[in-house]
Design a protein around this nucleic acid. Structure first.
Lengths: 200, 200, 200, 200
DNA sequence: AATGAATGAGGGTTCATTCAT
DNA sequence: CATGAATGAACCCTCATTCAT
């Protein structure tokens, strides 16, 4: 009786992987059990139902897997950055760079976030994360005053759009790096403190 | 063979209106012919198939109608603004204000853009519009240098997200005005020329 | 725009008839849409879903149809009887005679009553009907004192069992008449007032 | 090759017990292997298929177990009664009293009898038992003349219905005793010999 | 021009059973 | 003995589309 990893048995992992790829390809809505089963080399959809309680369960497992993968990639890069502005920049650049490493995962997650917000609690969590980061950054003088919620929504969503666009092809790492820098610049400037010579 | 307006016959207009409302309510994915027919007070889905070549055709008609309605609202406000920065601001504020006037249209369009990009050529048109505006603005010194395409994607998508969030409730016009100003500020700052004291 | 009967369109009636026959043959549990469609000569189960909101709806329509048919047969016979005892006898005899006229309907209804009490409100209604009949009959001195609910349950259920057994074959009318008389005797004696010479 | 008891191995007994409880709760139709396995604390339905040749086999084992349990309870009480009438009364009262002792078994058996008569040969055996009892009782002058088969069907089925109704709750022993007496009275009167003053 | 019945594919899910381990 | 993954059929239901009227 061995311990189960978060992906549990090999079949589960296999199905989750297939599901993520299918969602990335055709979108969450059209990611039917049939398609996923076919992509996973399974003979019937019953197999999926056998390993997962339902479509929601599979979806949750996909989100967990994606968040694990992306977290592993992004976490150290963000923590390596020092200060609110640098961390904002690190987050954006890491997220864009992610496209080069886990293209399917990134596309799938964004599609899920947009179309099945119910099943991905980590999503609204990301907006909340940005909000909190902006709030403490404002107190520290790293960001100008603004409505943290509105800005959090706009910037996370803009980030998603850029990422999804990039993920439509298989861009070179150097292109992704440039893209990340470009977007980080945009966000840093958008939230920068008001300079001395500027009128409020 | 008389000329057809974009809404064509009365029946078509009725169906398009119903479709927009249904898409706004339940999303593009779940907006089936049945639901649309029921919402339009039609007794059968055959009616819809009779007037539209297929789901794509209906969708295209919806997009056209929405773009007509939103264009009528936004166009004069944008044209009233003078200069690249002011027009950017006007666009953002007008788009947010639109929520108070045509909530269903706004929600429906964004849902279509996200989930059926093929059927809405006008959408990528919007990104192109932003790009072109940024490019000429950069030449005029109104905007700093940046990758126009990336920024266009990020900002239009961020705008959509804010609008869609606002459209989830029925906010007061004053709240929408404040929201529009907040977002316009964000975008203007994000694209502002590099100030004198700033290092490139 | 003609008025709809309780069976509505011809197709609906056809499906209801087929459903009743299938339920009578294989039981409510195994009466799947496939089987019903096949029995009705329909090419797909979608046809049934098109005419009925769901399985419950079809079931309700079946029960309504059966109750209409059986009511038409039994009602006049019961009303023709005079007095509580005679009416009890008339009910039992009419119900048994029903087997000769509407065999499938009788079998189907009893199976539904036993297995899907939810969808047949008229069922518990029958027990209540017996109860009420016994109560007023007791007040009139036609029946001895007893627990009306218990007796109502026992006698209706016993009646069902006899009917269902009879409906397993296609008995002659004379046999049914004898069977009905036999059962009516049983029930009349079971509920008869206490005679003078009898100890309470 | 040792002799097997009717419950055979421990696993079999465990599964049979679980099956009886599940059938009692959700009915024979919905008593799937999954549900039974879950109720028995088994991790897979394969376990059931391993110990039983099929669903019918399991069902047969359940019926055997139930009949053993109920027989143990009822047999001595019936044998303690003297004479045909007293034994009829004893049977009815013991059967009703059974609800207080083996509620699940009683509910399960009746559900099986109604929905899967093929798999429970002991059931038609009960009707035959009543028939035989009535026949010999009639010869002894304990019962009036009547069609033994019809009466046997009606009374056993009525008994089942009362029992099942009682088993829907957990009634007090005194209530069950009263219920049993009530029903026994009904049946004794229904079958009583024709009194002197009565016209045939 | 309009209707609404009919179609057939596909959706997710549950089921009893089998089989290699 | 026991396991649990795998199977394939059947379940009800929704879908966009077609077609005779």
């Amino acid at each position: 009786m061995r311990a189960r990893t978060f992906t549990e048995s090999g079949r589960r992992a296999q199905i989750v992987t297939a599901a993520i790829e299918v969602i990335a390809e055709v979108g969450y809505t059209k990611a039917s059990f049939s398609r996923i089963a076919k992509h996973a080399g399974l003979s019937s959809t019953g197999m999926i139902s056998y390993h997962f309680a339902g479509k929601d369960d599979l979806l949750t497992a996909c989100v967990a897997e994606i968040e694990h993968v992306t977290g592993t990639f992004m976490q150290p890069r963000i923590e390596a950055a020092d200060g609110h502005v640098a961390q904002l920049r690190a987050y954006v650049e890491a997220n864009v760079a992610l496209v080069g490493e886990h293209r399917a995962a990134v596309r799938a997650l964004i599609d899920i976030v947009r179309n099945a917000p119910t099943a991905s609690p980590g999503v609204s969590g990301r907006v909340a994360l940005f909000e909190e980061h902006f709030r403490t950054g404002q107190e520290a003088g790293a960001f100008r005053p603004f409505d943290t919620r509105t800005v959090a929504i706009a910037l996370t969503s803009g980030l998603d759009a850029v990422v999804v666009t990039a993920a439509e092809t298989t861009p070179e790492p150097t292109d992704l790096a440039r893209l990340g820098r470009e977007l980080a610049d945009l966000y840093v400037r958008a939230t920068a403190p008001i300079s001395e010579g500027e009128s409020a």
